[in-house]
């Protein structure tokens, strides 16, 4: 494992911890998109089915369990915890996320490396992860006051994607035959979706002002 990959995983872990901290300690999910969280739960559930069929390392299995557990608990918290649920911006979080799931499934059925159940689901999870942040970005744009934790959550998620790209570049040059087009292209699309957010985040940071995205 290279430093970019480890840093990427740790940034991803940090983003989840920031979100859980907000929900668990402050008992608020204001500004957090339940649609995006549901999509991530689907992403991890379909990608990590291989914990039953393959073993890579203790690290790999542990991280998979952490991401599965955290994504499902965030969804359950937002849906069923009374106080947390009350802070949910239901009226603003209107992105029709199921319209992302179907095209991703169709695309995975069309473009994949092997036509097997696990492989198609794995490919589907990559396509879906690429666009899963969209409901969250739309909600951020609609939210007048973005609190620091929500901003940091999205910033860390974007950082994780950026570091994964550095990891792929590193692996391409250091490991023979490391070519994975599906992973790379969907990963690149996913990272590009954050570009706009990163611009406004850095502006607010530079000017020491509250983060606000233009309508």
């Amino acid at each position: 494992m290279n430093i970019f990959r480890l840093a990427g995983d740790m940034t991803h872990l940090a983003s989840v911890l920031v979100l859980l901290l907000k929900i668990h300690t402050i008992k608020s999910c204001a500004g957090v998109s339940l649609k995006t969280q549901e999509l991530y739960a689907i992403v991890f559930a379909t990608r990590y089915l291989d914990i039953f069929t393959s073993f890579y390392s203790i690290y790999n299995t542990l991280m998979k369990l952490v991401f599965l557990g955290s994504s499902f608990s965030i969804v359950l918290y937002m849906k069923y915890h009374k106080t947390v649920h009350r802070s949910y911006d239901r009226e603003q979080d209107t992105f029709r996320h199921w319209f992302l799931v179907l095209p991703c499934l169709l695309l995975a059925l069309l473009i994949h490396e092997k036509f097997t159940f696990l492989e198609v689901l794995w490919t589907f999870s990559l396509y879906l992860e690429a666009v899963a942040i969209l409901p969250q970005l739309v909600l951020l744009q609609r939210t007048r006051n973005i609190d620091n934790l929500t901003g940091q959550y999205v910033f860390l998620l974007g950082g994780y994607r950026g570091l994964y790209i550095l990891n792929w570049i590193y692996r391409y040059f250091t490991e023979p035959h490391f070519v994975h087009w599906i992973t790379w292209i969907s990963g690149l699309v996913q990272t590009l979706l954050y570009a706009d957010f990163f611009f406004y985040y850095s502006q607010s940071w530079k000017n020491n002002k509250k983060l606000q995205l233009p309508a």
């Binding site: 991803h12 069929t53 393959s54 890579y56 390392s57 790999n60 990891n167 992973t183």
Partner: peptide, 10 residues
Amino acid sequence: LNKSYKKDEL
């Protein structure tokens, strides 16, 4: 258990 090289990432 089979091991797929590309799936060692999360």
